[in-house]
């Protein structure tokens, strides 16, 4: 899958990225924003994570601005003020034209913040991606991933429309880890009764795949302060 195949698929203006915390939602959301921008869309990335003050899309703010991506986050993101506040800018962007990517906090705990916008989002129409990672400890069984999805839907008052397989073992991810995870993601999609939109794979891993159909190459934007593997 070339990136734009997945992007064409995302016809709605509001694209919501949800999932278990640690599934790689934020990195995936940033990739979507970059690719949609490169495809010529006007793009806003909204960081709605009010649960986790670390490793969040707010870290990507400068890079986003450089690429011409609008960025909306809590005024207190990445500060020492660990309070769950939302930016008024999120409301303003819903239905305002252009693509709005909402990076939601992990689990149902993170999805409550999304619920606050559910009525307006339903009016405008939306795509809600449920990002899964077969290697996350507490969602290793498709049934566990489904249970969490239902909790997220209840909290957000919105329904997931697609599954995104973002299975990875951080820098240790190899081709076999990605291919092994596809049946898992298909099971989650089957149980949830919605399609599997794509399997994301780190770009260098994606390039090694013999069959590229259904895969979406991603770059790593969420980083640690040292070199990978050190």
């Amino acid at each position: 899958m070339k990136p734009n195949e997945l992007l064409d698929f995302l016809s709605q203006d509001v694209i919501i990225v949800t999932g278990h915390y640690g599934s790689g939602k934020t990195n995936f959301a940033i990739n979507l924003a970059v690719d949609l921008r490169a495809a010529g869309h006007s793009v806003t990335l909204a960081d709605l994570d009010i649960v986790n003050p670390y490793f969040r899309s707010a870290d990507f703010k400068e890079e986003a601005e450089r690429l011409g991506i609008d960025f909306v986050a809590s005024a207190y993101a990445n500060s020492n003020l660990d309070i769950p506040s939302l930016s008024a800018g999120v409301d303003a962007k819903i239905g305002a034209g252009g693509k709005l990517i909402i990076d939601v906090g992990g689990d149902d705990a993170g999805a409550y913040a999304l619920g606050r916008y559910s009525a307006r989002i339903k009016e405008t129409g939306y795509t809600m991606l449920y990002v899964v990672n077969a290697y996350r400890y507490l969602t290793r069984e498709p049934e566990e991933a489904l249970e969490l999805l239902r909790d997220i839907e209840t909290a957000s008052r919105l329904k997931a429309t697609h599954i995104v397989n973002n299975s990875n073992l951080s820098w240790q991810t190899e081709v076999s880890d990605v291919t092994r995870s596809v049946p898992y993601a298909q099971s989650v999609a089957e149980l949830a009764g919605i399609p599997l939109a794509a399997t994301a794979a780190r770009r260098d891993v994606a390039e090694q795949l013999s069959e590229k159909q259904g895969f979406y190459p991603v770059d790593i934007y969420v980083k640690v302060p040292w070199n990978p593997g050190e």
Partner: peptide, 14 residues
């Protein structure tokens, strides 16, 4: 098998 965990979770499970 390898799994992906947050430091705090891994300490707890261990």
């Amino acid at each position: 098998e390898r799994v992906l965990m947050k430091g705090n979770e891994a300490l707890s499970e261990a």
